[in-house]
Design a protein around this nucleic acid. Structure first.
Lengths: 158, 158
DNA sequence: GAAATTTAAGCAATATTATTCCAAAATAAA
DNA sequence: TTTATTTTGGAATAATATTGCTTAAATTTC
């Protein structure tokens, strides 16, 4: 695990919120001049704690009006079942997240984004339930998003 | 809703994957010269379909070894209950996502990231279950992340 | 606690990249 | 087919990132 000082943490906090900051602006916010600030950013990127930089879009503006959270159970817990399921899920662009979890209710939690309920129906019947081993599927639908935060908490590093 | 042509969609697909691309590289990938490419990017940003740009970090490298998915039920469905709950949740840095959903099992789906099980325990007892109205709490823990994709599907726009 | 060593900071020069302007091409309308 | 509108590409300009070097700060060692 990498060692980070106060300034590194502040840099990460800023860039987690807004990676379009110029180095100049970032340097001002963390109280450094541009060159050491940039050197730190590069060092952080080289250290492997940065995954990637992305642009986030607004669902509503793109006509993606339905988000579903799905609990999925598998019939058997064999390596083969998991492998096939995960390959398939990775190939579906509608799937934003898929996580294998503990719990008696289900094996996978999956988040799906589509245009509307009709498209969701198509996704369920045409794609998801076609995967061998998928035995239980329970959907919840997004009513309102309270918090959507890609930032990780860094308070424990200080 | 904004009207987008093939090239706009390709630009968005690239930047959703990697917003650190230079305009030069982006222009090459979508088959334009730099100036019209940049103009399109700016137009897309002005159009309101872009939410923001962020840097994504790796949990494992930051000592955040536990991710929990929590189903939360409220005792009563009064506006006051929701308002207080949502204010509180927004103030917790451990909470990465919180969504109000349909379904008989629960009201909110919450994703939490912490260092370890002890910290999770502290979070549950010290923060989450302190919020008035929280009656049911059921946790699932991340075993393995299959897909974590901040990109929205854009295929329906073509 | 002082000197030596290491480390990081700041400034200035350079390189890279973004941005703007204008003429030309492509597209759409008449 | 002609005209109007929009979009493109290239070149000049501006902004920003990047690097080398010197100085200051912090840390370690004696």
């Amino acid at each position: 695990m990498v060692s980070l000082d106060r300034i590194d943490v502040r840099i990460l906090q800023e860039l987690q919120q807004d990676s379009s900051l110029t180095n100049q602006e970032l340097a001002d916010r963390v109280g450094l001049s541009p060159s050491p600030c940039l050197r730190r950013v590069k060092a952080l990127e080289d250290s492997g704690i940065v995954d990637r930089k992305v642009m986030l879009l607004k669902r509503s503006e793109l006509g993606l009006k339905l988000t579903a959270f799905i609990q999925i159970s598998m019939d058997r817990h064999t390596p083969d079942r998991f492998t096939v399921f995960e390959e398939q899920v990775n190939s579906f662009p509608e799937v934003r997240a898929c996580n294998l979890v503990t719990g008696q209710n289900c094996d996978y939690l999956v988040e799906v984004v589509v245009e509307d309920m009709e498209k969701y129906h198509d996704f369920l019947l045409g794609k998801l339930t076609r995967i061998p081993g998928v035995s239980g599927v329970q959907s919840s639908f997004l009513l309102r998003s309270i918090k959507e935060n890609t930032s990780l908490p860094l308070g424990h590093l200080l």
